[in-house]
Every structure is written in C-alpha cells, then in structure tokens.
C-alpha cells in the first residue's frame, strides 16, 4: 500500500470504531424487551377448545391447558408475511383496573401458543407488526 492509502485506512478505522461500538451497544441496550415466550408448546396439543375468534389474518383459539390454565393459540390464516408479530392482551383485573400485557413475539411461525395462566375472558387480543407499526389483528374474546 502507498502512504496515502495507509493514512486513509488509519483515519477510516479511527472514526469507524467508536461509531460502531456506540451504535451496536446502544442498539442492543435500547432494544424493546418483548417477553420472549419460552412456552414450548409446539408438540403439545390442548384438546379442550373453549372458544374461537377469527380475524382477517389470524385465528385465535382459547383452550384449556392440562393444569386448568388458559392457553391462547394464535394461527396465521392468510398469506401476509409480517416481519414481526407482537401479541398483546388487554384485560380487567379483579380489582377493576385495566391491564395491557405483551404476551410475546410469534417469531415468524405460523402458529404460536401463549400461556395466559389465570386470565379468562372477557379480554381483547392485538397483533402488531412492530417494524411497520401496523395493527394486524384486534379481536375481543
């Protein structure tokens, strides 16, 4: 390499390194902490279907888990291909206060199950594309 090129390389990297490290670390730290659903239910089936609600793009099944807990099964039924699908639930606590809770991301899968534990209808469920910021579904149980 010639001296000018060597100097240019040095300058480029001295500028690039702090920018990249600050960008990478802050990007990671500021990332929204969606609850990651560790609820590995892909191979488990819950036969007791309580209720089904269908929207344009999704089918929502509320089922009974083996321990009596509520299971919300979300299935994509249209050909849309969202980059991210965040499932949120809104329900009223026994105390009367309204709670909005993020259940988790569907992670590009066509079917996902969430453990609602003791949450029972009435409640509403929303699916949002967090990248495009659009609501993909909003239903009431």
């Amino acid at each position: 390499m010639i001296a000018t090129l060597r100097r240019r390389h040095r300058i480029i990297w001295r500028v690039l390194v702090p920018i990249l490290f600050i960008g990478a670390v802050s990007g990671y730290m500021l990332a929204p902490k969606y609850p990651s659903d560790q609820f590995g239910v892909s191979r488990i089936s819950y036969p007791q279907l309580l209720r089904s609600v269908v929207s344009e793009n999704y089918m929502f099944d509320l089922r009974n888990g083996y321990g009596g807990e509520s299971i919300l099964e979300v299935k994509q039924i249209s050909a849309i291909n969202p980059v991210s699908e965040l499932v949120t639930i809104r329900y009223r606590k026994a105390s009367g206060s309204e709670v909005t809770q993020e259940l988790g991301m569907m992670g590009g899968r066509k079917k996902y199950s969430f453990n609602l534990k003791t949450i029972q209808p009435p409640f509403s469920v929303t699916v949002t594309d967090t990248i495009k910021r659009v609501t993909l579904a909003n239903i009431e149980f």
């Binding site: 960008g23 990478a24 990007g27 990671y28 990332a31 990651s36 980059v83 991210s84 992670g107 967090t130």
Partner: peptide, 9 residues
Amino acid sequence: VLGVLQLEH
C-alpha cells in the same frame, strides 16, 4: 443490531 437483535434480544 437494528434488525434481528431488536426482535430477538
């Protein structure tokens, strides 16, 4: 960083 790391922390 702004793609996959935002979706999967």
